[in-house]
């Protein structure tokens, strides 16, 4: 029973840490000259990559 409580607390701590870091990271301003990294990405032909233009099309289209 104790284990279960530990597990829940641990999961909450880890999840909270990730959420906090994620939010902090997205609030940190992007350095100068890097604003259009996604649009300038030419490394990819395969739609799997999250930066690929077709990904944003799928998201907008639906």
């Amino acid at each position: 029973m104790n284990n279960l409580i530990y597990a829940v607390i641990f999961a909450l701590v880890m999840g909270g840490m990730y959420a906090a870091l994620y939010a902090l990271n997205h609030r940190t301003p992007v350095p100068e000259g890097c604003e259009n990294l996604k649009e300038e990405c030419e490394g990819c032909t395969i739609s799997n990559c999250g930066n690929h233009p077709s990904q944003s099309k799928i998201i907008e289209g639906e």
């Binding site: 999840g15 990730y18 939010a23």
Partner: peptide, 10 residues
């Protein structure tokens, strides 16, 4: 909206 990806991963 800000933390939706962490929620999905959990």
């Amino acid at each position: 909206d800000e933390i939706r990806i962490p929620v999905y991963i959990v």
